[in-house]
Nucleic acid binder design. Structure first.
Length: 423
RNA sequence: GGAGAGGUGGCAGAGUGGUAAUGCAACAGCCUGCUAAGCUGUCAACGAGCAAUCGUUGCCAGGGUUCGAGUCCCUGUCUCUCCGCCA
């Protein structure tokens, strides 16, 4: 959530920027917030004055009772009745203004960074690097779903039987390969200074708001109504929320975590070949890296994280490309996002395997995640996260590009983890 | 799931209706050959003011009673103990 101070200071440039880069018009919401904020502060001033009067009278009454001056006390009591009503109604006004402002603030997306290209759809994303794919195309190559049934690696039908579409069952070497990838990603992250966490797969409503999934993506999460808990759509939610309401000493920054969890997404509205095979699932595995940094460091950190994830893809020998997301494609909470996509030779298309974002203070403001600076003042920290990596599409690309007459060859770096060299 | 007890600042821990003691830790300043100690202040949110500063709020959350609530009442929630169930 944007800080109210930003809107007070410079609301027009916020409106401009979101319109120009994200192609989203928030004029009326921002102006309304601005006006309501004025009213809110006015209300607080009167409320404070009245409360102050009330406090003074109350303590006078206390003194009177101590001195046995009951008549005077009773007279003073009469004075308070009016005051009391006014305070009550001012408080109601204040609270409803406060809630209105919050609701509206929740609807304003993050301000895009200078590097974000303007644009509406994924066609406006900037391609920063792309592997050459011409030589890779070959109509004999099978898509991964065919490979999965040919070698009995993943059974999509079985998942339908026991749960529903989008919940595949991994079998035998398919399951082992999946586990090997997870282990590989976790070990690499550990070696790069990310502390590993194993976190809950369900979170409460507050956590959902903390990282911004709520209210923006309400319909995308599975909701357990009996206990009012949500299945996590990414481990970003539990990991970042660990630091909700926390104050971190400046010299403990940056904080670096890695976590593996399954992720659950309802993916309402998805259909057709977009959801074929491993392309889009309701439950999938992901290793996620999260960092909390000093504001002055967050963009360096973002670059490092992107480099790190690129390194993983390179070690797996997968052709990939790197995109800088345009305003329209940029997530609600993000200020700058890079996507990494690996090439699917069996489908002749790019698959998003990682999304790495800097949220600046957008999440930390909601989370009240702060650090204490050199002057002992509290400042909002910056939060970042990225997939490192999302398993299903890596699996898809990997199976497809390593298919040969004699089977599927396991990439060199994974052999120690799988214990076999070929499927 | 049933019964009981409890939730107070970074931590520890007082406080049963009069406006949050005290200790430890941390930070800043002062003081003293050095160190230790000592003294003073700070340590949450919001608002007003150029500022020193001032006001309001804050004792798990939300309501209520009262001139006044950490304290009394109601609801929720979490923790602990006992019982039940269980990998």
């Amino acid at each position: 959530m944007l800080q109210i101070q930003q809107i007070r200071a410079d609301k027009d440039s916020i409106i401009d920027r979101i319109l120009k880069i994200r192609k989203l018009d928030v004029t009326s919401q921002v102006n309304e917030i601005f006006d309501l904020d004025l009213k809110k502060r006015e209300t607080q001033k009167t409320l404070d004055d009245f409360s102050s009067k009330m406090n003074i009278i109350s303590s006078q009454i206390g003194d009177c009772f101590k001195n046995g001056d009951v008549d005077k006390a009773n007279n003073l009591k009469k004075e308070t009745t009016d005051l009391k009503d006014q305070i009550k109604s001012l408080k109601n006004t204040f609270n409803s203004l406060d809630n209105l402002i919050k609701e509206l603030l929740y609807q304003i997306p993050n301000l895009p960074h200078d590097l974000v290209p303007p644009g509406k759809t994924d066609e406006d994303n900037q391609i920063i690097y792309s592997a050459e794919t011409k030589n890779l195309m070959n109509s004999d190559l099978l898509p991964h779903w065919d490979l999965c049934s040919k070698y009995n690696l993943i059974d999509f039908e079985l998942g339908v039987k026991i749960t529903g579409a989008g919940f595949p069952v991994y079998k035998g070497k398919g399951a082992i390969l999946q586990r090997a990838l997870i282990q590989f990603f976790l070990n690499e992250a550990n070696q790069n200074g990310f502390q590993e966490l194993l976190v809950p797969h369900l979170v409460n409503e507050t956590s959902g708001y903390g990282t911004g999934q709520l209210p923006d993506k309400e319909g995308q999460m599975y909701h357990v109504e009996n206990d009012d808990l949500y299945l996590i759509p990414t481990s970003e939610v539990p990991i970042t929320n660990i630091y909700r309401n926390d104050i971190i000493e400046e010299n403990n920054l940056p904080i670096k975590h890695v976590g593996y969890t399954p992720c659950f997404r309802r993916e309402a509205g998805s259909y057709g070949k977009e959801v074929r095979g491993l392309n889009r699932l309701h439950q999938f595995d992901k290793v996620e890296i999260v960092q909390i940094t000093h504001p002055s460091e967050s963009y360096n950190t973002l670059d490092q994280m992107v480099n790190y994830v690129e390194g993983l893809i390179k070690k797996l020998n997968l052709p990939y490309r790197k995109l800088r997301l345009c305003g329209g494609d940029l997530g609600f909470t993000s200020a700058l996002t890079y996507d990494l996509e690996t090439y699917s030779v069996g489908q002749n298309k790019w698959l998003e395997v990682s999304s790495i974002s800097n949220f600046e203070t957008f999440q930390s403001n909601r989370l009240k995640l702060r650090y204490r600076d050199k002057n002992r003042n509290l400042q909002l920290a910056h939060t970042l996260n990225g997939s490192a990596l999302a398993l299903p599409r890596i699996m898809a690309s990997l199976l497809e590009i390593n298919q040969f007459q004699d089977g599927i060859h396991i990439p060199e770096v994974l052999k120690p983890y799988t214990g076999f060299e070929k499927i």
